[in-house]
Design a protein around this nucleic acid. Sequence first.
RNA 1: GGCGGUGUGGCCAAGUGGCUAAGGCGAAGGUCUGCAAAACCUUUAUUCAUCGGUUCGAAUCCGAUCGCCGCCUCCA
Length: 468
Amino acid sequence: MFLYNTLTNKKEEFVPINDKNVTMYVCGPTVYDYFHIGNARSFIMSDILRKYLEYKGYNVTFAMNLTDVDDKIIKKANAQGVDSNVIAKRYSEAFFEDIEKLKVKKATIYPKATEHIKEIIDIIQKIQDNGYAYNIDGNVFFDVVKFKDYGKLSGKNIDDLISGARIEINEEKTNPLDFALWKKAKPGEPYWESPWGNGRPGWHIECSAMSTKHLGETIDIHAGGNDLIFPHHENEIAQSECANNKKFVNYWLHFGFLNINDEKMSKSLGNFFTARDILKTYSAESIRLLFSQSNYGSPLNFKSELLDATQKGLDKINNFIIRLDEIILLNKSGITPAFVIEDYKKQFAEAMDDDFNTPKAVAVIFDFVRDANKVLDENPAISSEFVKEIKSFVYNTAEGVLGIIAPVKEIKADNTLTDKLIEMLIQLRTNAKLEKNYKLSDTIRLELDKLGIVLQDTKTGTTFKINS
RNA sequence: GGCGGUGUGGCCAAGUGGCUAAGGCGAAGGUCUGCAAAACCUUUAUUCAUCGGUUCGAAUCCGAUCGCCGCCUCCA
């Protein structure tokens, strides 16, 4: 498997440190609000990567942090006159609800900054002991110029950064690029005790501390949004490598930004969409298929028309699944056609192995569905066992890795009374058709359709499905 | 200004040196059907922003031009 590594700007063969065990860290949310559709891309794409690694037989330890102490949280808490952990708790819970709706598999661990203050203090201490940090009156800063590799991820050099620095010069720092590891407590802010006095962690340090604690000093994969490359990930490298004297991450992956109607998403432009809102109109599968149909690293211009189009593609796969289920239900024996599922399996893996090429992988699935449909058309007597194999391929890939198969619509109603009533109506319609009373038969079909019950005439009789 | 990315059919999008330029949506026609639905088939880019170059051969490499985007501000 090859991955595009931001650190080297090259596609590199993925070789885990520890054989079949992979460690993976993805920057999670700052829990001060519902996450938006752009965040959702990171969560979904890292989920797909993780699931694919597992599909390939790797044992993945996947950590995603929750930043639960931060300026934005504090600001919101003060505005609402509540404690900052009330805000953090509220939006952490919302985060878990939303990722579940998006069919994102739970990470192995979701470490929280506030539960790792000890580890954070320890790692700051190490950085300071190693000579890369300085303390000014209870604020501890990382001394950027001391770390010779600073800028290696983002391709920046320190001199350019200094001359281009637009941030107001903080009198306390010796260099404007230096960033806070530990912030001295201000009135009205949460704080913890530390060797430097009461304060709270800087934003970057938690990832270094928690990644080291849960995954080790060097990890396989670290991913996040494109905008985190600088300064966040650059700073993580500086912190971790200066604390541990070891390479921090072997493979850096970055997800492209998502624009809305060609504009950057922002609250002021009024084009800010939370995942929660979008899920009210569109299914998780639509969102996941849309993201899968473009390269994870490229920018994606998000429009509702794209989700509409995606939904149609999804229907094609879902109808196929329903068709398979119907055949399996009949449990017939029959021929095993010359249809080599293994070929598609190989193509799917080839696509995914090539830097996680989900658009190509999706194309393989659509090819498979088309070809398998053709096989089913041409072979009315097909063995149910073989159909199960077909289904198993689609499930392992389209659902198991990509998560794009909707919960199967009911072939039969869950309520036997409803079931029987529908069967009666179908029988009436069939009789009407035989009598060429098409006016009646069409009325029955259309009225049922209004109720979300879709009839389909097949060679073996009329079937129905119920749309939720 | 510095760094990086990108420009492929009506829309989205894969392909980064050589078989007929994937796939999805849309559109047109067809098979099946009383009609639908579903499914399948056919058609829909002699062409890959533009101009030049390298090469037996380029969407793919190089140069220039134009366009768009991101980062350099604790935004995923």
